[in-house]
Design a protein around this nucleic acid. Structure first.
Lengths: 193, 193
DNA sequence: ACGGTAATGGCACCCGGTGCCACCGACAAC
DNA sequence: GTTGTCGGTGGCACCGGGTGCCATTACCGT
């Protein structure tokens, strides 16, 4: 049993990382401990994950790919901003069974300083996808102000929705997302005064 | 001559860091090199700056403090969102003489992955200040959705304005900031289609 | 059984960051 | 001037994340 990432070694490492980071804090757990706990060597751990921080992200690349697919699939129908927001909502509409895992991940990512810093690099991938879509719709370059602006602000709104969901999970995540996007798209109507 | 951060050692270190990082890339410069170049020891470098990344931020804490002062000074006059945006514009209205330095800093921070990641931690200080102000105006807690949302999105817009300014400095920074905030506050009117 | 291929793990190394301590220059008291 | 204190300094050893290199191991097709 070699030639493929052996057994469930990779997922064992992800679980071990999540558990250890959650219980003792990201900084107070060494990569050795995670590796040991997953039954692999430190060297192998760093072949699965580019950095210690990457061990908490699961299949984030797939997540981004799904978002991109959603956006390209909609073609040029409907308003641009609403399409982006809808895609965000849909790609984050997790089945109930996955919610605890999602909570654990996001709690770590948004509450642990080192992971929050690292998140910027992963979220930049999302921004790029969104900016490219907006640019395609508006005829701008992806580096023009509006495409970048839409990418940055919608992502900020989505992240904020996650934060709100983490502090109070009685309301479903998608509802927080809708609320955040609606506020933003309407130009924060409650703050006109 | 000791008892104060000796001579201009700290500012020499900042200059050395900026120069070296810009010319050779953040990751390819060791903290030893920066320290040597500033005529101090590595140990002393890390007493001036908590991390290698902090050496590029200048007096960012003062920057945040000025933003906070601006916000508390305005009292409860004028619409909330507009006040936040105006404060952002004003605090980033640098005299011409400082623009080259600002460019160098922001270019590094936004283009070097390690520095971009680190920036999240510094920008979180800004978000906190803004969220507190909005919360005070709306009667919410600073961790409620709307205060956090305003903080996150305005900061995202400001960062985007900086990016645009970096790619084309023919237009002044404040104008990019206005443009970004206006787009956002109006709910991206150009993207309704 | 055999050779190729790929995952693995050990090792040495680099670098960022820290705790500890010895040193030294400034200054005050006497 | 001597003494003592104080604070910035720098050397040193150490830890932990991350990497290059290489030998080993396990699977696979033939």
């Amino acid at each position: 049993m070699a030639a493929q990432p052996r057994d469930g070694a990779r997922s064992r490492a992800e679980r071990a990382a999540l558990d250890l980071f959650t219980s003792r804090g990201f900084e107070h757990v060494t990569s050795d401990e995670v590796a040991d706990s997953a039954g692999i060597s430190r060297r192998t751990f760093f072949r699965y994950f580019a950095t210690k921080a990457d061990a908490v992200w699961g299949d984030f690349a797939g997540h981004v790919a799904r978002l991109e697919q959603l956006l390209t699939a909609t073609g040029d129908a409907g308003p641009v901003l609403a399409t982006v927001c809808a895609a965000y909502v849909e790609v984050n509409d997790y089945p109930d069974a996955e919610l605890p895992l999602l909570r654990e991940r996001m709690q770590l990512i948004l509450a642990e300083p080192a992971l929050l810093a690292h998140s910027q690099l992963r979220f930049a991938e999302v921004d790029l996808v969104v900016a490219r879509y907006v640019a395609r719709r508006t005829g701008d370059t992806p580096t023009a102000l509006v495409p970048r602006l839409v990418a940055a602000t919608t992502r900020a709104a989505a992240t904020t929705a996650f934060e709100a969901w983490l502090t109070d999970a009685r309301t479903p995540l998608t509802q927080y997302l809708h609320q955040a996007f609606d506020e933003m798209a309407a130009g924060f109507p409650g703050l006109r005064r």
